[in-house]
Amino acid sequence: MGSLVGTGMPLIGFSWVFVALLWSFFTRHLEQELQARAVLLSEAASETWDGDTMSVPRLDPLVARWARHSDVRVTVIDVNGVIVAASSHAVLGKVANDTTQPGMLRALSGMSNGTVWQSPNFDYEDTMYANVPIVVAGGEILGAVRMAHSLTQIQDEVRDVRDAMLVTLVAYVAVLVAVMMWLGRTIARPVEALERHARDLALGDMTQRVPRIRGTIEVEALASTLNRMTERLERLEGLRRQYVSDVSHELRTPLASIRSITETLMAHGRTDPDLIERYLPRIVVQVDRLARLATQLLDLAQIESGNLIAHEARVELGNVVDEVFGVVAPAATERGVQLVRAFPKGLPAFRADRDRIVQVFLNLVDNAIRYTPRNGTVEVGARAEGRVL
């Protein structure tokens, strides 16, 4: 609505100014035209001078001809102010005055003038007048010419223009309202729906989806992208929760094992020294396992916060596997699983974060040992295919 008012008000102001300028142009043009015609008629009237007065028999057809061809009302007075010729014979012989013929007596003093007046001769319509003195070659003033033209036609034309502009403005406002309603349906409302969904997503609600909306191609594409992103975040959140649940379960297993071994040592360790030698390595294995789980949780927290920093260095995969085998060897021996290293000679080195690579292989091999049957084999191998390892 604010945009509608902000756009409509300047148009209304422009229309008002345009109509005022149009009226000013027409009236100024009519005034100049009346003055020019009055001057021409005064010159023609001066030619009827017979050395004493103007010849009325010669003035009458001249005035009639000008009135007929110019569509104006013509009045001619002599030097005494008596109307000697006119397009309306009803005023002949009357004395001009400022009440019925404003400006004519002023023209007798040699001053051309014009005025707009509601003349009783034109049913009190707005009428424009031009008064011009009649001067002979010696400068003597013989009388004055008055030309009058009703402004009704100009008023009607300006009114038609104003009405047309008003209709155009109303049509423009109607179209603008329709466009704004269309934009509201196709842009504003879909964007509001997207904003609500984004707000719910920021609050952690990943179960909601943007409903199917009808809008521009860009808005529909944005809604589809937002739904796909929400689904991906929901899957990732599910994986994170599952991972935390798995780690929590994994933490209980070594803790329970350490507790059981510790209780056994506390109860029988003093009387059976062989128990200490047999069970202490198991405690070390379980502690290492707990340390790896704690490292994984720390890495997960760093990944979620965006603070995980990789430290790239030259890595030889054989050395990585040797280190991993050294860590998991006690667990493999306890479970009766054989570890096999199957690497060809000349395996190329690569650049990576060595600690992360060790962690990856440690998790893989540890899981393989736990899920391999007794007397089974866990084999780790690699090969180079071009630039791919």
Rank of each mutant, 00 (worst) to 15 (best):
L166H: 08
L166P: 07
L166I: 03
L166N: 11
V167D: 15
V167I: 12
V167T: 09
V167Q: 14
V167F: 11
V167C: 15
T168L: 15
T168I: 09
T168P: 06
T168N: 12
T168G: 13
L169T: 02
L169M: 10
L169P: 01
L169G: 03
V170D: 02
V170E: 04
V170T: 10
V170M: 11
A171H: 06
A171L: 14
A171W: 07
Y172W: 14
Y172K: 03
Y172Q: 06
Y172A: 06
V173E: 05
V173M: 08
V173F: 14
A174V: 12
A174C: 11
A174W: 07
A174D: 10
V175P: 02
V175G: 10
V175H: 09
V175M: 13
V175R: 09
L176F: 14
L176K: 13
L176E: 13
L176Q: 13
L176V: 11
L176M: 15
L176I: 06
V177M: 07
V177A: 04
V177E: 03
A178P: 02
A178K: 09
A178V: 15
A178Y: 08
A178N: 08
V179Q: 04
V179F: 10
V179P: 01
V179A: 13
V179S: 09
V179Y: 06
M180T: 12
M180Y: 08
M180H: 10
M180F: 14
M181Y: 13
M181V: 15
M181N: 14
M181S: 14
W182N: 10
W182A: 08
W182D: 07
W182R: 10
W182K: 04
G184A: 02
G184M: 01
G184S: 05
G184K: 01
R185Q: 11
R185Y: 14
R185V: 07
R185W: 11
R185N: 06
R185C: 05
T186Y: 04
I187H: 03
A188P: 04
A188R: 13
A188E: 11
A188S: 09
R189S: 12
R189Y: 13
R189C: 05
R189I: 08
P190C: 01
P190I: 00
P190E: 01
P190H: 03
P190D: 01
V191S: 10
V191C: 12
E192A: 12
E192L: 08
E192G: 11
E192W: 06
A193K: 05
A193S: 07
A193Y: 05
A193T: 10
L194Y: 01
L194D: 00
L194N: 01
E195M: 10
E195S: 09
E195P: 04
E195I: 06
E195H: 13
E195A: 14
R196W: 15
R196A: 09
R196P: 02
R196K: 13
H197L: 15
H197K: 05
H197I: 11
H197A: 15
A198S: 06
A198V: 09
A198F: 07
A198G: 04
A198P: 00
R199E: 05
R199N: 06
R199L: 12
R199V: 14
R199K: 09
D200T: 04
D200R: 12
L201Y: 08
L201D: 01
L201T: 07
A202Q: 00
A202Y: 00
A202K: 01
L203H: 08
L203K: 04
L203D: 04
G204E: 00
G204Q: 01
D205W: 00
D205N: 02
M206G: 05
M206N: 05
M206P: 00
M206H: 07
M206R: 03
T207S: 14
T207I: 04
